[in-house]
Each structure stands twice: as structure tokens, then as C-alpha cells.
């Protein structure tokens, strides 16, 4: 099987290790990977802030960048949700681009979705010696991927999974929300970090760069020893 990697802008700039881990993991599972160089950002920041013309420009750019990819895999529920749920909506009045958007939406998969539902693997042969907890990124709810990451995590050797209180409550990232309302967002991430600290784990696992930078930034400010770990990084370790 062959896939194209959609790295996402946050992953590209801030968490390149996640991309490297995704490539290694996929190759280990016998999937070959390419990286279309024209890709930049899916346009979700513009879409969410109501700049829909800009979002359409960026969607067209992404649709073109991945036009030749048989399948697209992205280590981000948020960007997968943008492509799968919002791109078709953006082009309601434009039959040509609407069809192309629907086509890309069908070909695109968030990483855990790809592994569990397309490749049909749950045990990817990963190993992690220690205790970890899992925070569910909000966009996985929209994509209906509530179980997939947990099924993968549960098969990791040596990993002791500690349940996280309110594991599915938003960490307070929300893109521009975190900048517009730092107090509200700050209260949310402070609670999240406190729940994580309470589990006394070595690492907190999540599937999205946004959650990781927000939760990680709060844990770091507090001087916490809990590491942030993307699902791809966890699964790439053997």
C-alpha cells in the first residue's frame, strides 16, 4: 500500500519528530510513504475564524497538492476533520471543486483511523516501558474515532494505561480561542494539567499537535515531569 503524508503546518514547524515517527511506523507496517512538497496548511484557522474565502483558497491548494495521492494519512484529527467534514461544505456552490473535495475527503484518514480501519491492525509491535494516560482530542469526536486510539494504545507492550479524569474534555486549545480568551482557555488547560498530574504517569498521549502544544506548554510552565507524546511517537517505538 502507498500513502501520502499530510504533515500539517503545526506538525511541520513544531513537531517534526511526529512526522518522522509516522513515516517509520507506516514503513514498518509495509506501507510506502511519499511527501507532496506543495502542501502547507489545511486552512482550518481561516475557516474557524470565519474567513471562508481564504479557507477555500487553502482548500483548493491542498486538494491540488494531494491530487495524485491514492490515500492521504495525517497524524492529526483536527486537520483530518477539516478535510473530511469541512472541505465538501466549503464548495457547495461549486460542482467541480465540490467533487474534488469529496474525493479527497474519502481518501484522507487520520492515523489511528488508517491503522485500525484501513490496515486493520491494532498491535503495531510497539513497546513503551512505563505509565501513560490518554487525552482525547476533540476532533476525534467529530470523526467518530472514539475507540481507535485506545485500541492501539492497549496493545502497546509494557505500557500501563492510567485512566484520565474528563479525558474527553477539551484542553482549551481551540486555535484562535486560546489567544482571544487566554483566561478561559488557561482555566481549561490548568484543569487538564492537574488531572494529568494526578495520574502520576510518565507520559500523556494525544493525537493532535494543538493539544500537545497546549497541554505541554502548561505542564512545562508548572515544571511537571510528565512528557507529552504523540500517538505516532508512541507507536513507532519498539
Amino acid at each position: 500500500m502507498h500513502v501520502s503524508l499530510m504533515i500539517t503546518c503545526l506538525g511541520d514547524a513544531f513537531f517534526p519528530d511526529v512526522g518522522v515517527a509516522t513515516v517509520k511506523l507506516l514503513r514498518r507496517l509495509g506501507v510506502s510513504v511519499d511527501f507532496p512538497q506543495a502542501q502547507t496548511c489545511c486552512g482550518q484557522p481561516h475557516f474557524n475564524s470565519g474567513y471562508h474565502d481564504d479557507a477555500r483558497d487553502l482548500a483548493r491548494h491542498a486538494i491540488t497538492a494531494f491530487a495524485k495521492s491514492p490515500l492521504v494519512v495525517t497524524p492529526s484529527g483536527s486537520c483530518a476533520a477539516m478535510v473530511k467534514l469541512e472541505y465538501p461544505e466549503l464548495f457547495h456552490g461549486d460542482p467541480t471543486w465540490h467533487d474534488r473535495a469529496v474525493d479527497l475527503a474519502k481518501r484522507t484518514h487520520e492515523l489511528s483511523d488508517f491503522l485500525v480501519n484501513v490496515l486493520k491492525v491494532e498491535d503495531v509491535g510497539a513497546r513503551f516501558d512505563g505509565k501513560a494516560t490518554y487525552h482525547m482530542a476533540c476532533h476525534l469526536r467529530g470523526l467518530g474515532l472514539v475507540d481507535e486510539p485506545l485500541r492501539l494504545i492497549q496493545k502497546v507492550r509494557g505500557l500501563q494505561l492510567v485512566p484520565l479524569e474528563r479525558y474527553d474534555e477539551c484542553c482549551g486549545f481551540g486555535g484562535s480561542f486560546a489567544v482571544r480568551y487566554p483566561q478561559i482557555s488557561g482555566a481549561m488547560v490548568t484543569d487538564k494539567a492537574a488531572f494529568i498530574e494526578k495520574t502520576a504517569v510518565d507520559a500523556v498521549i494525544a493525537t493532535d499537535a494543538g493539544c500537545l502544544m497546549n497541554i505541554g506548554g502548561c505542564l512545562n510552565r508548572k515544571g511537571s515531569k510528565v512528557r507529552i507524546l504523540h500517538l505516532a511517537e508512541l507507536l513507532a517505538q519498539t
Binding site: Q37, A178, P182, G186, M213, G216
Partner: peptide, 26 residues
């Protein structure tokens, strides 16, 4: 605008090499 973010939490620094730069090694 990032100042609002760092009122309550730290912000990750961009990586020394972006993923697209590291793709060549991969």
C-alpha cells in the same frame, strides 16, 4: 498576539529543522 498565550502557559519553539527539511533524510 502570542503574548496572550504565554500568560498562562509556555509555547513550543519551532524545531531546529522542519519536517520538510528532514524529509530528505527519510
Amino acid at each position: 498576539p502570542g503574548a496572550e498565550w504565554t500568560k498562562v502557559r509556555d509555547f513550543p519553539a519551532p524545531a531546529a529543522k522542519s519536517f520538510r527539511e528532514r524529509w530528505k533524510e527519510l
